[in-house]
Simulated scan of single mutants.
Amino acid sequence: MSFPIDQRLVADTHPLGELPLSIVLLMDDARFPWLILVPRIAGARELVDLDEADRHSLMGELTHVGRALETLLTPDKLNVAALGNIVPQLHVHVIVRYTTDAAWPQPVWGHGERIRYEAGARARTLARLREALAPTLT
């Protein structure tokens, strides 16, 4: 991945792959299945910074990722958000939520202590997600 990603995102995630517009990252918190899409648009901070074609592409990628997560993990709810209060680089969270998860019904941000993926679980999770997002994920 040659596109520069904010170091806070790099520190908190594992690379999953790339879609035509976005880099896809797995948040390193095993409590919540949580992907982040980072559009490869230099200087973009807000969704409104994308031109119409790129906004359309991003929405298509979010739909693709959301549907794949629904099929793979059968969530009660998908949370999709582009906040940027801490990391200004445009990125969109897609978080699988269950009524039984540790933070329900509150947001996952700041809830409890993160549980990092164990190496084997991380590898299995990344492989399952890559398969679910194929063939568009490279």
Rank of each mutant, 00 (worst) to 15 (best):
Q89F: 06
T99H: 12
W34E: 08
L133Q: 04
G110C: 08
D29P: 15
G60I: 02
H64A: 10
G112H: 09
A44N: 09
P107A: 06
F3M: 05
G120E: 14
L37S: 07
M1V: 13
T13V: 02
Q106D: 13
Y98C: 06
F3V: 07
L129D: 04
A134G: 13
I36A: 14
A121W: 09
P39A: 13
G112P: 07
A44S: 15
L50H: 09
H111T: 10
T71I: 01
T125H: 06
I5A: 01
L9V: 11
W34S: 10
Q89I: 07
T74P: 00
A134F: 09
L16M: 06
T63I: 10
V65K: 00
L126H: 07
H56I: 08
T125S: 08
A119I: 09
I23K: 03
T99K: 14
S57K: 14
R122W: 11
G110K: 04
A127R: 13
H93T: 13
L72K: 00
A42W: 01
G84D: 04
A30M: 13
A53K: 14
V48T: 15
P105C: 12
P15C: 05
A53H: 14
G43E: 13
T74D: 14
D29E: 12
V94N: 01
R8A: 11
Q7W: 02
L73R: 14
L73E: 10
L78R: 02
V65M: 00
V80P: 04
P15E: 05
L50F: 09
L137H: 02
L37E: 06
L133Y: 07
L83G: 03
